[in-house]
């Protein structure tokens, strides 16, 4: 069974491209448009990996990440943060809060796919 990826982003254009890209690479793709929706979806969906945008309306990607890592049932899920901020402080904060990897926008799709493959097959250390 193909692995499940949840895309959490509010920008429609990037969502369309990511959806297409991940599907082309054989993943089962789901989309959440904001943090709340993502937190609702994750426990029932139990994705293998989450592509998490940092700048989300209402609840930031950092908040979502922190809540994922605090919840024993879902804390093992791999998270790649997508940050448009690109500031060193954001990356430090994301990794400190338990992100498995980060990708700075704009990214090359090839590099993103590589990163996803690499992260999704990593042995769980948590």
């Amino acid at each position: 069974m193909s692995k499940k990826i949840l895309i959490v982003d509010d920008e429609p254009s990037i969502v369309i491209s990511l959806e297409f890209l991940m599907a082309q690479n054989g993943y089962n793709v789901f989309v959440a448009r904001n943090g709340e929706q993502a937190l609702d979806l994750i426990p029932e969906l139990m994705p293998d990996l989450i592509l998490l945008d940092v700048m989300l309306p209402n609840r930031s990607g950092f908040d979502v990440l922190q809540l994922i890592r605090k919840d024993k049932k879902i804390r093992h899920i791999k998270v790649i943060i997508l940050t448009a901020k690109g500031r060193d402080q954001d990356i430090t904060k994301g990794i400190s809060l338990g992100a498995d990897a980060y990708v700075t926008k704009p990214f090359s799709t090839r590099a993103l796919v590589e990163k996803v493959k690499e992260t999704i097959t990593q042995k769980d250390e948590k």
Partner: peptide
């Protein structure tokens, strides 16, 4: 800057997809 990066990310992803 965030919004420009977002848009560029959209363009790049779409262009990559078209090419790849």
């Amino acid at each position: 800057i965030r919004r420009v990066r977002d848009s560029v990310a959209g363009i790049r992803a779409a262009a990559d997809n078209l090419k790849n």
